[in-house]
């Protein structure tokens, strides 16, 4: 039986694996090269996303080291490295989104990295994109809450907290910790904000923090202290 020519061509295209540009070039030694699977756009997106996360983690590591660094020169160097790594993370997250536009985690992580280099408005746009794709992605709600803080959009930050308070107490705690830090920073430098606005927000944060502590399980230290006090 003779195969039609078009079937032979189709079979050839299907059975012969394509070579990747980055495939097997370093294996050496004359060993047989294993054909590599061509990555789908989604898989490429994941590769870029993971690379972005690595840069983000590096950036955060520099940030942590900078906090305790007392030498001014070393501090400046760490801050520079911190910023460089966040910018690399931004490139990777953007690449991931190009491969797979509905990658809501990548949009959210992009927003985070943008916020860390003080590109607040762009960061907000990235979080909004993430939440448009998945409105229940609490991580993006928390990130966006922190971005609102950075922009002094306090009512929206409060709304983000209340949403998290109902859905994810760990992230709600994280956001309120950021709010407490925001209040402390604005007490030092109001940054053009009216002191009364800061006071009012501080009062709200304190009350919310207290209410959260009321309905959280009592920690062992308090329990022990109460028992001992009797």
């Amino acid at each position: 039986m003779k195969f039609p020519v078009y079937l032979v061509i189709i079979l050839a295209l299907t059975l012969v694996p394509p070579l990747h540009a980055d495939q097997g070039s370093s294996s050496g030694g004359g060993s047989m090269q294993q054909p590599m699977k061509r990555l789908t756009p989604e898989e490429k997106a994941v590769v870029s996303y993971n690379a972005g996360l690595k840069h983000r983690d590096k950036a955060e590591n520099y940030e942590q080291r900078a906090i305790t660094e007392t030498n001014e020169k070393k501090f400046a160097k760490l801050k520079k490295k911190n910023s460089k790594e966040f910018n690399r993370a931004i490139d990777d997250f953007e690449k991931a989104i190009k491969y797979y536009p509905r990658f809501y985690q990548a949009h959210s992580s992009l927003g985070y990295a943008l916020r860390k280099v003080s590109r607040y408005e762009e960061s907000l746009a990235a979080y909004n994109e993430s939440l448009d794709i998945n409105p229940f992605y609490d991580q993006a709600i928390e990130y966006r809450g922190e971005a609102y803080l950075g922009l002094n959009r306090l009512e929206e930050a409060k709304e983000a907290y209340m949403e998290l308070f109902q859905n994810d107490r760990v992230l709600a705690d994280k956001l309120i910790a950021a709010m407490i830090a925001w209040v402390a920073a604005r007490r030092d430098d109001a940054g053009g904000l009216d002191a009364a606005v800061v006071d009012q927000f501080a009062e709200w944060v304190e009350q919310r923090n207290t209410l959260a502590s009321y309905i959280q399980p009592m920690d062992d230290a308090t329990r022990d202290r109460w028992a001992e006090s009797r």
Partner: peptide, 25 residues
């Protein structure tokens, strides 16, 4: 919830109860 009364030592969490599932535990 105060140190003075300590009601929440036994009636805690969102249902102000003992022996219940709580976030974080």
């Amino acid at each position: 919830f105060s140190d003075k009364l300590k009601c929440s030592a036994c009636h805690e969490g969102q249902n102000l109860a003992g022996s219940q599932y709580l976030p974080g535990r």
